[in-house]
């Protein structure tokens, strides 16, 4: 009996008491290797201990948003740093966020911010076409996503499961930009042309890199990583002369009723600052700053050089909810 008591006590000693001190808890779906240095920098600057939970790629686990929703009655997180512009809107709808207008974000274009401050956008990615330069010539490369339904690329295009992550948001944006009829036709044509639906954006990258398909739709960060790894692949910002490329800003929200509201606000102020936008532009993920006039590496385009789709993000979230059932059928689920 004595032994058991001792054993149990030691075990309980192992459990660190977690809720003490000057800290902020952040859940982030931004990739750990990019987010961690930023958060460490914040820690160093403010002395506030950052405790972070990172997400996996959308299709590898039922990630953070479900956890946030499940924790609603007793929120653990103070800040949610999303790497897409729709899930914060979703959390807002579910009543999980609380408004906070950061004065630091004043110079960020207003289409990337919620008026009430439920979410604030910063550093963005874009949906691009990645093609294998060994298999596709520079001059025949597709310049529009509508080129992908050409018979020439039959069975040579990959796209991630459109139910998840940035792909699903991209689809919703297309439905808004084109109208339901045209968008559905485009998707059906794509399917008729033998598009390969794979599990994730990084799968798209892997298949293009290995030459199993000639091209695919993915995000800028995947494309940049591919180029960094020495893969014979290049990105195209599609539809520059027509509807524009879909821009995916990161967003940050303050969680309602969390324990460290003040520290949370400080973290948000830091994340939407031009310092962070600059850091993320120079990081391997090559995020495009939303502010004009931030110096970026030569291979990272700034938003004034790219024509973005003219889209209202809450609309995308609303649209997504409506088309998910269609997408599910389209993807064969």
């Amino acid at each position: 009996m004595k032994f058991i008591t001792i054993a149990l006590t030691t075990l309980f000693m192992l459990a660190k008491w977690c809720s003490a001190g000057n800290e902020v808890i952040v859940y982030t779906s931004e990739d750990q290797i990019f987010a961690e240095p930023i958060l460490q920098e914040f820690e160093k600057k403010t002395g506030i201990k950052v405790r972070a939970i990172y997400d996996t790629e959308e299709t590898k686990s039922t990630g953070l948003v479900n956890r946030l929703i499940a924790e609603k009655d007793n929120p653990q997180a103070d800040v949610f740093w999303s790497n897409d512009p729709v899930r914060p809107v979703l959390l807002q709808i579910k009543g999980l966020t609380t408004p906070y207008v950061s004065s630091v974000a004043a110079d960020i274009p207003s289409i990337y911010k919620d008026v009430d401050g439920h979410w604030t956008g910063f550093s963005a990615r874009a949906r691009i076409i990645l093609y294998n330069t060994n298999l596709v010539n520079m001059d025949e490369r597709p310049l529009s996503i509508f080129d992908l339904v050409k018979p020439k690329w039959r069975g040579q295009v990959a796209i991630a499961n459109p139910l998840f992550g940035t792909t699903s948001i991209h689809m919703a944006a297309l439905f808004i930009a084109l109208g339901d009829e045209k968008a559905k036709k485009f998707l059906n044509d794509l399917k008729a042309n033998g598009v390969k639906i794979v599990s994730s954006n990084s799968e798209v990258k892997r298949l293009v890199a290995r030459g199993e398909v000639k091209m695919g739709i993915t995000d800028t960060d995947d494309a940049h990583m591919a180029v960094k790894e020495g893969v014979p692949a290049k990105e195209v910002f599609p539809d520059q002369s027509t509807i524009g490329t879909f821009i995916i800003p990161d967003m940050v929200s303050l969680i309602k009723n969390s324990r460290n509201q003040e520290n949370g606000k400080k973290l948000i102020d830091y994340l939407v600052s031009s310092t962070v936008e600059r850091s993320l532009a120079w990081a391997p993920c090559a995020h495009m700053p939303l502010r004009y006039g931030i110096k970026t590496p030569p291979d990272v385009l700034t938003l004034d050089a790219v024509k973005g789709m003219n889209i209202n993000y809450p609309d995308v979230a609303a649209k997504l909810e409506k088309i998910t059932e269609f997408l599910k059928q389209w993807a064969g689920y």
Partner: peptide, 24 residues
């Protein structure tokens, strides 16, 4: 991955959170 407190990640979680966009 759904329940671990911050700072308590295990190896598979490290693997999967790092997998996104880390060098292969």
């Amino acid at each position: 991955i759904l329940v671990y407190p911050p700072g308590h990640e295990t190896l598979p979680i490290t693997l999967f959170t790092v997998m996104a966009n880390s060098p292969a």
